[in-house]
């Protein structure tokens, strides 16, 4: 028997969950402009949640429902499963548009929206998102019905290998939903937690600005 499912069996797992929440804030938002207010607020909210609820002990494979892209999804997985692994390995059909690149909040390739805010799916436990609204790249648009930002990424060639692209789209989409006329500076900040090894940044900025300007007029 291995000792490694300790995460799930630890009676203090709820405090671990709250630490995960803190990390989510650090990874998904700290790099952006919301640094000053956002992080502290999120940590506070997470603490409040974990204090309010009685500790919940979860182990083994558990079944639960998540709301993903506006649809109820039934999942069956271990409580230690991150949202990222849950999307990719436990959804039917698998939602693999959200990429796994660093698995520790350093690259933004796994960016999704949770209740409309960008977040790193590798830093959250799936089970902790019950009752929240998760949106992935698949929920934004599809080939033949791309959303305006996706369309602009395509036309400006803001993707080469394309492995980072869903993450960039999600980060910038979240920014544009808040700030439809975002400036170059705001766009750079919005995707400062994303990395692109192929070096598409100049085209990413052009693509995003084209949409931002479009929204302005």
């Amino acid at each position: 028997m291995s000792d490694s499912s300790a995460d799930a069996q630890d009676p203090q797992s709820s405090s671990k969950l709250s630490r995960r929440w803190f990390l989510r804030g650090a990874g998904g938002v700290a790099a952006g402009s919301a640094f000053a207010g956002g992080l502290a607020q999120q940590a506070e909210a997470a603490r409040a949640r974990s204090l309010a609820a009685a500790p919940e002990v979860l182990e083994g494979d558990i079944e639960f429902e998540l709301s993903i892209n506006g649809q109820r999804m039934k999942l069956r997985c271990e409580p230690r499963t991150t949202l990222l692994n849950a999307l990719r390995n436990h959804c039917e059909p698998p939602l693999t548009g959200t990429k796994q690149v660093c698995d520790r909040g350093n690259c933004g390739a796994c960016t999704v929206h949770v209740d409309g805010r960008p977040a790193n799916a590798c830093l959250m436990l799936a089970v902790d998102l019950r009752g929240r609204e998760v949106r992935t790249i698949e929920g934004l648009g599809a080939p033949g019905a791309l959303n305006p930002l996706q369309e602009s990424f395509w036309k400006h060639d803001a993707q080469m290998c394309g492995f980072c692209t869903p993450g960039f789209v999600m980060s910038i989409q979240a920014c544009l939903e808040k700030q439809p006329n975002a400036s170059l500076e705001q766009i750079k900040r919005a995707c400062s937690g994303n990395i692109c090894r192929c070096g598409t940044y100049p085209a990413v900025f052009e693509a995003a600005l084209a949409v931002a300007k479009g929204g302005a007029r």
């Binding site: 990719r88 390995n89 698998p94 939602l95 693999t96 548009g97 959200t98 990429k99 796994q100 992935t136 790249i137 698949e138 934004l140 648009g141 599809a142 080939p143 033949g144 791309l146 996706q150 369309e151 990424f153 395509w154 036309k155 060639d157 803001a158 993707q159 394309g162 492995f163 692209t165 869903p166 789209v169």
Partner: peptide, 21 residues
């Protein structure tokens, strides 16, 4: 010429080896 696989890439539909299930 915008790349032909742009739409599948920007929409997360391109199946990379990592994504094969």
């Amino acid at each position: 010429v915008p790349r032909v696989d742009g739409p599948v890439k920007v929409s997360g539909r391109a199946p990379y080896p990592h994504d094969i299930r």
